[in-house]
Nucleic acid binder design. Structure first.
Length: 896
RNA sequence: GGGCGCGUAGCUCAGUCGGUUAGAGCGCACGGUUCACAUCCGUGAGGUCGAGGGUUCGAGCCCCCCCGCGCCCACCA
């Protein structure tokens, strides 16, 4: 048979890259505007510009590309905007590391300007890597609209947003307690702090009352902060300490005097019931300090060493200071005890080191005014979150939101557009660099050295990438976008902020649906980490199994919002599926090429043809329904199982018989095969774009070359990526008789195969059979060929009758689909074993009859919907018939 | 301290609107080599759906409680 240049094994290596190029060159990734059609738009979550592809990227590409390809096939003007994020901290860290390694210099040594230059160079070198890798996955995004958060347009958007917020009073600069990352030497936001439960100690010591031998016992987890204490607080009603309120006590070692105050915040039950107050280095102490007008002492330098306020401990690292101070206090007789204590240690999400609360002058975004509309948008249903349970999480966060510290003491990022006058110290906030001070007109201006949190620019992404603040055609056409698809881990970091900023600046929700996928774990459900060594590299997976296999695995192995344990076995299985698609296409293509007649109408075709066409329609309806419910994984599984389990395993086997028969049967079969394959390839394209496009191209070619080839409704499109998505047909239009008849065939054939395998009958042997088919006699008589081929029966010794049959002595009796079958075995069969089998089946059937009778006799018959009851009635009739048939056969067997 | 998710075959996971005999892939067992595919085909074994209670004619699915695992949020030193 000619192979039409289709190798026996699908070779994704020589297909994927070529097809991607073709799609891109043909301009399919650009939106095709269609008047009156609502555009479908996704803003890609921008990967870190210097990042490397990991499975999280693979996941979002799989899901987003699925949505994009689906909508493109629906004919919607479809746009997927790609881009990358400058990722301030991450990128700066990488470049710093590189600098240290190659030139043994720190960023401070080469200076800000040179460092930023170097980072741009780094971006130029490595920035393309991640986007190349996204292409390998098949991401069909519009690269002509690719954006980078630091490029000219987006920087302009950032400045515009900043100035507008500032002018509205929603951005302010002030000195407050923030989270300081000593390793990174920058402030970080609350979200960038993670708390890990760690074993620490609770230190108990004495706060001596000035001029007295009395003391207040106090407990702390961080003794070094004692040096910054500005009060000791007790509960106003606490009998133990009430008489001390208003007195002063002495800070250990430093001997500063501080007041004993009272505050109801203090928990009398915890520790000693007395609380040391360090407003400079603890969030609650800060608040208490504010209430009582306490002095704030900052103890730390930017690297978390102790500063001049620490007296004798100046210059020591925070932990060295902790030990030294405690030892000194011990010597001074101030120590009571220490005990083990499990505590929540704040650590930097990025660097991992312990974050110190510290008072510092920073920029903040006032969140409450922004949060309110963002809450409303979701409450009113203008934005829907999938899965819905995250709505609650979203509400909870926004309802308790605190101001967002947006300034970072980094060099890589959007410089804060604020300038300070050297002469009058006034601050000028402006969209472009001002030439003179807004207050005194001096030209001696210095720009604020800080940059903005990366998430500030990401928060503008859906509209900044489309041209905002300018009212560009893209912004008018494609904003608001449609779906925001991303991992649930950045719901607060990114999604919530996009909603807030989108509403603030455009007055519209930036998207109508938020679709959240889960995190990817290893085959055992563990987080992937370099130290565990269980990181699965998507590039390696694609090398081994192909991009389609990886995508299909991610899509069908997960449900929205739930984590996925990626197992390579599944990827391998899906690689095999791609190969199955390929080989089925080879068969179909060959068949189409040899067709020489025009096919008859579908309703005139063979039972198998009618059946598979009806099943295809059924499945198309199901897939469309599932898509509308966002159940993409289930939809993919349905097509998978249909294609392999029904189309390939049943239909194609039968179609081969029709092909052998010659015309016109062969052409009919070729036509049906092509139609079903075409539909499946369309449905699967969003899941496995490469193999489907390649196979579809072959199918299309074969059909077009043939005079009698199949032709889809509306004709062949240029490429599968832009082919029409199959529409559902109404349930009532289905060929129900074909579905029912074929089911009988399947049951019968399976039963015969089962007995043959169990009895060890030679799989190749064509054996005689006698079939008492009752009402199905006509059906089976018409399906002799199918029956004999799939059940391996001897066509010359197959007797089918509606009444009784006379099998040869020793034939094996079978009942399936209420049809009695007798198989002639080559060797004498074990009569006792057959009897046991029949008796077992009879017992089962009788049990079913009893169960169904009881059921139909119960309130069920009155209360359940008629449709459900009817189903059970039919089932009962069927089982009763089965009992009769089995009894007959047993009688026959015993009589022999 | 609050909130959420998960627990289904040996493993990894599906299970839609609650419908009465719970599915897939891998693995396992038995058998199969021309004619699309050994990345294949046929057959089979394997399940008290974490435990208990409730609602219902009917529960893997809804409600309550408990156990185990995981995650998120939160200012008890």
């Amino acid at each position: 048979m000619p192979d039409f240049n289709m190798p026996k094994t699908y070779d994704f290596h020589q297909v994927e890259q070529r097809l991607y190029q073709q799609w891109n060159d043909a301009g399919y990734f650009r939106p095709r505007l269609a008047p009156g059609k609502q555009p479908f738009v996704i803003s890609m979550p921008p990967p870190n510009v210097t990042g490397e592809l990991h499975l999280g990227h693979a996941m979002f590409v799989a899901v987003e590309d699925l949505l994009i390809r689906y909508h493109r096939m629906l004919g919607d003007p479809t746009l997927w905007v790609p881009g990358s994020d400058h990722a301030g901290i991450a990128t700066q860290l990488q470049v710093e590391k590189d600098l240290l390694r190659t030139e043994e210099q720190t960023r401070e040594e080469i200076g800000r300007e040179a460092f930023v230059e170097r980072t741009w160079a780094w971006k130029a070198k490595y920035g393309g890597m991640i986007t190349r890798q996204l292409r390998r996955l098949g991401a069909s995004c519009d690269w002509e609209r690719e954006r980078f958060t630091l490029d000219e347009g987006l920087s302009r958007a950032v400045r515009e947003a900043f100035v507008r917020l500032y002018e509205k009073g929603l951005i302010y600069r002030g000195t407050y307690l923030i989270n300081w990352s000593p390793g990174l030497k920058t402030a970080v936001s609350d979200l960038e702090v993670e708390y890990s439960e760690e074993q620490g100690k609770l230190y108990y010591f004495k706060y001596m009352i000035a001029g007295s031998d009395e003391f207040i016992p106090v407990a702390t987890t961080r003794p070094e902060t004692i040096l910054g204490d500005t009060a000791v607080a007790v509960h106003p009603d606490d009998e133990r300490y009430r008489h001390l309120i208003g007195r002063t006590c002495l800070v250990p070692i430093l001997k500063r005097t501080i007041p004993v105050i009272h505050d109801t915040y203090v928990d009398r039950e915890f520790g000693t019931g007395a609380l040391k107050i360090t407003p400079g280095h603890d969030p609650t102490d800060y608040e208490i300090g504010q209430r009582h007008g306490l002095q704030i002492i900052n103890l730390l330098n930017t690297d978390a060493s102790l500063n001049e306020n620490a007296g004798p401990y100046v210059g020591l690292d925070r932990y060295a200071c902790r030990e030294r101070l405690w030892a000194d206090m011990q010597r001074a007789g101030l120590v009571i005890k220490t005990e083990p204590y499990l505590m929540q240690v704040p650590r930097s999400q990025r660097g991992g080191e312990v974050v110190e609360p510290m008072v510092s002058t920073q920029w903040f975004v006032r969140m409450q005014p922004l949060a309110e509309p963002a809450l409303q948008a979701v409450r009113r249903g203008e934005i829907r979150i999938v899965p819905e349970r995250f709505t609650k999480v979203y509400f909870n966060w926004l309802e308790n939101i605190r101001d967002w510290c947006v300034s970072r003491q980094l060099w890589w990022g959007h410089r804060i557009p604020a300038w300070y006058c050297d002469d009058c110290e006034a601050m000028t906030v402006a969209r472009a660099e001002p030439s003179q001070c807004s207050q005194c007109g001096s030209a001696r201006l210095r720009q604020d050295p800080d940059v903005l949190d990366t998430w500030f620019s990401s928060g503008l992404w859906p509209f900044s990438t489309l041209g905002w603040p300018e009212n560009t055609p893209d912004l008018r056409t494609f904003y608001p976008t449609s779906v925001m698809e991303t991992g649930y881990d950045i719901l607060f970091f990114w999604v919530a902020r996009m909603i807030m900023l989108g509403l603030e600046f455009t007055g519209k929700p930036p998207f109508h649906t938020v679709y959240l996928h889960g995190m990817i774990r290893d085959g055992q459900g563990r987080k992937m980490s370099k130290t565990l060594g269980n990181v699965i590299d998507p590039l390696q997976v694609m090398d081994e199994f192909g991009a389609d296999a990886l995508r299909l695995t991610l899509l069908t192995g997960s449900t929205p919002g739930n984590d996925v344990n990626l197992s390579l076995d599944r990827v391998e299985g899906n690689r095999n599926f791609a190969n199955k698609l390929w080989n089925a296409t080879r068969l179909v293509v060959g068949s189409v090429a040899r067709a020489t007649a025009s096919p008859v109408a579908p309703s005139e075709r063979s039972l198998a043809d009618r059946w598979i066409l009806a099943r295809t329609q059924q499945m198309v309806g199901e897939v469309n329904r599932l898509f509308s419910l966002h159940q993409y994984g289930e939809a993919g599984r349905q097509v998978y199982e249909f294609f392999w389990g029904e189309f390939a395993d049943w239909y194609l086997e039968l179609a081969k018989l029709e092909l052998e028969q010659g015309e016109p049967a062969a052409s009919d079969a070729a036509h049906t095969m092509a139609a079903v394959l075409d539909t499946c390839l369309r449905l699967l394209h969003p899941f496995t774009p490469f193999v489907t496009e390649e196979a579809w191209g072959r199918l299309r070619e074969a059909c077009q070359v043939s005079q009698h080839g199949y032709r889809p409704q509306g004709g062949w499109e240029q490429a599968l990526i832009v082919a029409a998505w199959p529409a559902a047909v109404p349930e009532g239009a289905l060929d129900q008789p074909a579905l029912a008849s074929f089911q009988v065939m399947q049951q019968l054939i399976s039963a015969i195969r089962n007995v043959r395998a169990e009895r060890g009958i030679d799989p190749k042997a064509r054996i005689p059979a006698w079939i008492a088919a009752g009402e199905h006699a006509t059906l089976l008589a018409g399906q002799r060929q199918a029956l004999t081929a799939l059940a391996r029966l001897d066509p010359d010794r197959l007797q089918i009758s509606s009444g009784g049959v006379q099998p040869a002595a020793g034939a094996i009796p079978i009942v399936a689909a209420n049809i009695e079958v007798f198989l002639a075995a080559a060797q004498p069969v074990d009569q006792a074993a057959e009897r046991l089998r029949l008796e077992r089946e009879l017992a089962e059937a009788m049990a079913q009859v009893a169960r169904l009778r009881a059921l139909l006799d119960s309130p069920f018959a009155d209360r359940a919907p008629a449709r459900v009851v009817e189903k059970e009635r039919l089932s009962l009739a069927f089982q009763q018939e089965a009992v009769r048939k089995l009894e007959d056969q047993l009688a026959l067997l015993r009589g022999q």
